[in-house]
Design a protein around this nucleic acid. Structure first.
Lengths: 146, 146
DNA sequence: TTGACATCGTTGCATTTGCAACGACACACT
DNA sequence: AGTGTGTCGTTGCAAATGCAACGATGTCAA
């Protein structure tokens, strides 16, 4: 009749907990951006990456930010349409497309970065002296991939 | 001409890091399920919740697992179609729908739970004695909501 | 040079997602 | 009973997503 299930504690299951926390953080952040600047999280990541990185091809962003290249490509197109960045062919390798912030994009980024920092400060305050430990753990987990 | 951006380190930005790690964990897990059992992560969460919880309405799952109710509803429908669970109206409150595993569903769950546990064991082994600290931190962050 | 093979960015397509309705039902108050 | 308000699960729809092509370009060896 009724079979017995092995012991299992979903509430303590790490992949699940990560999903919940990550979703929560993303959502909180999205709310602060979307309404005010019309920028999605994905677009935000691309924007930041371009602003703070030397490498700026789609492929580079894909690697550095763990985003599907199609996701990056579409985000870049939306950002270009909105006037925040420009695309131009890399003459040393014509397969590559160099992305660069426009002045408008730089202005936007300068506005929204402090918001992101303030949010991280909240998290930091919540965790207190354990914040550094969290960063260390996240580092270990991120390195795990491949 | 070119404006200056405030200092910012994307690689150390917690919401970003959480997103990457969570996506990675979900993906790893999805691979182990999807191919072998045809079950998505969302469906897996619903399944586990029904199997290990007393409360089994859609609304209950929404609350306990941080899933949109439409997501739960659709996952439940798919699982029902696949014969893993049954729906029936709660006679004490006819707005509610009680979800229950079928025997087939219980069998499936008994098969896949050990896989999930083995995966968590990998993570635990990677983190060693810091695993408990991670759990504590995740707990703090999960409580933060609302 | 030619040809085989890899890489880049884009796009088509099916699926999933989030959000806002919606109908059905519950409850409180009159 | 009737009315208003709230909650439940479902569904429609637009947007986002993942994945597999695809054309264009680069690389390297014959």
């Amino acid at each position: 009749m009724s079979q017995t299930l092995p012991e299992f504690d979903l509430d303590g299951y790490v992949p699940f907990r990560f999903a919940v926390v990550a979703h929560q953080l993303s959502r909180d952040l999205a709310i602060r951006y979307k309404d005010r600047f019309g920028i999605s999280i994905t677009e935000w990541r691309v924007l930041v990456n371009i602003g703070y990185s030397g490498d700026v091809s789609i492929r580079d962003i894909e690697r550095r930010v763990s985003l599907e290249k199609s996701k990056v490509s579409r985000a870049a197109s939306r950002l270009e349409a909105a006037g925040y960045l420009s695309k131009c062919v890399d003459e040393s390798d014509r397969r590559l497309i160099k992305l660069a912030l426009t002045e408008k994009g730089t202005t936007l980024l300068a506005e929204i970065v402090p918001i992101a920092q303030a949010y991280q400060a909240e998290v930091e305050a919540l965790l207190g002296d354990k914040f550094e430990m969290l960063q260390e753990l996240l580092g270990t987990l991120m390195d795990r991939a491949r």
